[in-house]
């Protein structure tokens, strides 16, 4: 079993209204010195098998086909144990 964490974030230059709202809320709570806040998504995926290279290739295909919209989002894949 391979566990992986996929992180999907908005590309630079793509407006993130939700991140902006969170930024404002942090300021309203009194947190000072908060710069830009960007909201993203995390997927924890379990895969059968033990071949990390195959897992990485499969996960990349999953990101390209479904988990990320590459028009507006970037993704990164981290394999765990």
């Amino acid at each position: 079993m391979i566990k992986a964490r996929i992180t999907v974030t908005l590309k630079n230059g793509v407006l993130d209204p939700q991140g902006k709202a969170i930024e404002g809320a942090l300021g309203a709570l009194g947190f000072e010195g908060v710069g830009h806040v960007r909201q993203g998504k995390v997927f924890d995926v379990e895969l059968e098998g033990s071949d990390p290279a195959k897992a990485e290739a499969d996960l990349k295909a999953m990101c390209d086909k479904l988990l990320a919209n590459t028009v507006i989002e970037n993704y990164s894949i981290a394999l765990g144990s």
């Binding site: 793509v14 407006l15 209204p17 939700q18 709202a21 919209n69 028009v71």
Partner: peptide
């Protein structure tokens, strides 16, 4: 249609939220 790649671009959350 955008998600299917039949049209270019993407639709995001309204700026007003």
């Amino acid at each position: 249609l955008l998600e299917a790649g039949l049209l270019p671009g993407a639709l995001m959350r309204n700026t007003s939220l």
